[in-house]
């Protein structure tokens, strides 16, 4: 997939704490180009803008539980759009229910990460979605 640490990253989570922590953690791997959304409507709008302006996101961390439609709904919508075929999506949730993991992967999520997100867990997931060797934290 060839993701690069300079790629645009969209972080979708209704909690500022989690967005901030994820940015810090990703910063340890060299990522600097973040965009945040606190709900699914804003996230979807940002995704449309990114596509229209040809400044696409490469990686999305998508919280399952969001105000309004869920992260899973958004995942299904984006995966139905062929223009987002290259987008890597990692679902984030505080639950580890097997059914949810399977549903997310079946719907096209590249991977799945449970809160709390540790540096080690994040590194593993980044490599899984195609970063290969990332700069050490």
């Amino acid at each position: 997939m060839g993701l690069d640490p300079q790629s645009r990253v969209l972080i979708v989570d209704d909690f500022e704490l989690m967005r901030t922590m994820l940015k810090r953690a990703l910063g340890a791997f060299g990522f600097t180009n973040f965009t945040e959304a606190a709900d699914s409507n804003v996230a979807d709008q940002l995704m449309v803008e990114a596509t229209v302006t040809r400044r696409p996101f490469s990686l999305v961390f998508l919280d399952w539980n969001l105000p309004g439609s869920t992260g899973y709904d958004l995942l299904c919508k984006w995966r139905g759009n062929p223009r987002l075929a290259e987008l890597a999506i990692i679902m984030v949730t505080s639950e580890s229910d097997r059914e949810k993991v399977q549903a997310a992967l079946k719907a096209g999520a590249n991977d799945y990460i449970c809160k709390p997100i540790s540096i080690d867990k994040l590194k593993e997931k980044l490599e899984a979605v195609g970063l290969g060797k990332v700069r050490s934290a």
């Binding site: 909690f15 500022e16 704490l17 989690m18 505080s94 809160k115 709390p116």
Partner: peptide
């Protein structure tokens, strides 16, 4: 929000 998310996690 921080306490809410900590409680949640």
């Amino acid at each position: 929000e921080g306490v809410g998310e900590l409680t949640n996690v």
